[in-house]
Structure formats: C-alpha cells, structure tokens
Simulated scan of single mutants.
Amino acid sequence: MVQEVDIEALAAARERGALVLDVREAFEFTAGHVPGSRWIPLGQLAGGLDGLPRTGPVLVICASGNRSRVGAELLTRAGFDAVSVSGGVAAWSLSGRDLAAGTA
C-alpha cells in the first residue's frame, strides 16, 4: 500500500525542496498546478522514470488523489521514495494556496 500525505505535509516537503510530480492530463496541468511542480501524465510515467531524480522524496499529485496513488505505487515499485498527496490539487487550492497556470 502506498503512503499518503496531506496538503500540510506536501507544503512542508515542497519548502525543503522535494519534487512534486503532477500526473494529470495536459489540460488539467495548464489550468492550474502546484507552483514548481513537474508534469508527467500518468499514462507516460513508466516511460519517464529516467528523467526523475532518485534522491529525496517524490510527492505525486493529481486532481483528487486517485491517479496519484497509482503513480506513487509505480514509482515505489521502481525504487523511488514516493508518496501520494491526499486530496490532490483540489485540496491544495481549497487550502487557500496559490496555483500556477500554464505549461510545464
């Protein structure tokens, strides 16, 4: 089972320089994402592992937490220290935090 973290843990890890990986589709990422996050759609994640750092945690985020669990599980099986962000970008936005817009 994949570990999940809440938005507060995401914010703290992000401040420490952890990688935030957004696995949503392009139109979702462009509409609004956690500032500084990296984008690889879930369907392309297995082929994009070589471009990800193997040091430090990877916090996987999606719209609400379903796709991020799948992505975090894939990364964990590949040897990454990955966790899923519960509530996703929706929870980030609802917490009053800013979203960035535009392409990666």
Rank of each mutant, 00 (worst) to 15 (best):
M1A: 14
A78T: 11
R14V: 09
G48W: 15
G43C: 12
E4W: 08
S64Q: 07
R77S: 07
V85G: 00
C62S: 09
F29N: 03
P41F: 15
V60H: 01
L19Q: 05
S64E: 06
G65A: 04
P53Q: 15
A9I: 12
L99K: 06
G56N: 08
L94P: 02
R24K: 10
L74R: 06
G17Q: 01
I7Q: 02
E28H: 05
R14P: 01
A72Y: 02
G71I: 07
A101I: 11
P35M: 04
R69Y: 02
L75R: 04
E15L: 12
F80D: 02
V20Q: 01
A31S: 11
A63C: 07
T103K: 11
G36W: 13
P57E: 02
M1K: 14
A26T: 09
E4H: 09
G65Q: 02
R77Q: 09
L49S: 09
D50H: 15
A46Q: 15
E4Q: 13
V60E: 02
S95H: 10
R38P: 12
V60R: 01
A31P: 00
G51P: 10
A104L: 14
A31V: 04
A13C: 03
L42I: 10
G32M: 09
L49E: 08
H33Y: 11
V89C: 05
V60Q: 00
V23S: 00
S95K: 10
G48S: 15
A11Q: 09
P35E: 03
T55C: 13
S93D: 05
G102E: 08
L52M: 15
L42T: 07
E15S: 12
A78P: 00
A90C: 04
D81M: 06
G47A: 15
I40S: 06
G79P: 02
V58L: 08
A63I: 07
C62I: 07
G87E: 04
A9W: 06
V70N: 01
G88F: 06
V5L: 03
G102Y: 12
A78Q: 12
G88Y: 08
R16L: 07
A101T: 08
S93F: 13
A9M: 10
I7F: 08
D50S: 15
G65S: 03
A13T: 14
F29A: 04
S86F: 12
G51D: 15
A46Y: 03
C62T: 07
D6G: 14
N66W: 14
V70R: 09
R54W: 14
G96P: 00
E8F: 12
F80Y: 11
A26K: 12
G36M: 11
N66D: 09
G43A: 13
D50M: 15
R24D: 00
W92G: 01
L45N: 05
A101N: 09
A9E: 08
D81I: 13
L45K: 05
T76G: 01
Q3P: 07
E25Y: 04
S64Y: 06
G36K: 07
A11H: 08
R14H: 10
L74C: 09
Q3S: 05
R24C: 02
A26D: 12
